[in-house]
Structures are given as structure tokens and as C-alpha cells.
Design a protein around this nucleic acid. Structure first.
Length: 112
DNA sequence: TTGCTGACCGACG
DNA sequence: CCGTCGGCCAGCA
């Protein structure tokens, strides 16, 4: 039976499951949750992640183009890039290099 | 309570 | 190719 968990909670769970050195997209998470149309809410959940005490690796979540769209929401646009590079991910021009190589699809990784 | 906005994505002209 | 619009759910005035 499903809990009264909201879209936010689901997003947090998936984001926290993202392995180090990997990245995913808002649409991928939304699609995995079955709400592809609510890709916007995924980003909104990330915004709430700062308010949440849980450690949410929001820097591992980027848009479909691998662009660091939400970098500005980390307090400083450099934080997101530094965090990604700290995990071995190359970021150039606010965009992840070989994004498809670092891309982590929950629907594929979490699903057998 | 109603309505707008938002770290996106995809479709249409 | 590029500009515009609709849709999804939740938070805030």
C-alpha cells in the first residue's frame, strides 16, 4: 500500500540513490516515477532539498541537455560544478562532458 | 480559496 | 532553425 508520500518524497528517494560519479536528468526521474509531465516538480523538489535536512545530491541532477540549469540555486554557480568535478565528472561551459556516459537512468539501473 | 510561478520536456508552426 | 505554448504538482501571497 502506498504511503501518503508526495512527489517530493519520491524524488528525494531516487536522487539519494544516485551513485557517486553519476548524473541524471529531471525528466528521467519524473519518468521513472511515472509522472513524466511533472519534470518541473523534480527541480522544484531539489529546491526544497536545501530546506530539507536530508543530504540530497541535487548537483547530480541536471536537465536533459546535461546543462547545469540549477547551478544558481546552490548558493553559488561554482558549487555545482565543483561537486561534479569532485566526483570525477568533467564540466565545461556549465555543461557535463560526455553526459550520456555519466548518465544514470533509474528506470534502467533500479529496474532489473 | 484562487491563481501564479517554477532547477523541465516535448510538440507545433 | 527558432520562438511559443501546454502540461505536470506543489508552495506561497
Amino acid at each position: 500500500m502506498e504511503k501518503d508520500v508526495t512527489f517530493f518524497e519520491k524524488v528525494f528517494e531516487v536522487v539519494k540513490l544516485i551513485p557517486k560519479g553519476r548524473v541524471t536528468s529531471y525528466g528521467a526521474i519524473a519518468g521513472y516515477l511515472g509522472t513524466k509531465g511533472s519534470s518541473r516538480m523534480v527541480g522544484w523538489a531539489m529546491n526544497s532539498s536545501h530546506h530539507s535536512t536530508a543530504n540530497i545530491p541535487a548537483h547530480r541532477v541536471v536537465n536533459r541537455n546535461g546543462l547545469l540549469t540549477g547551478k544558481h540555486h546552490f548558493g553559488s554557480p561554482e558549487i555545482m560544478k565543483q561537486l561534479l568535478e569532485s566526483e570525477g565528472i568533467t564540466v565545461e561551459n556549465d555543461q557535463i562532458v560526455s553526459f550520456d556516459k555519466y548518465f544514470w537512468n533509474p528506470a534502467t539501473e533500479l529496474n532489473d
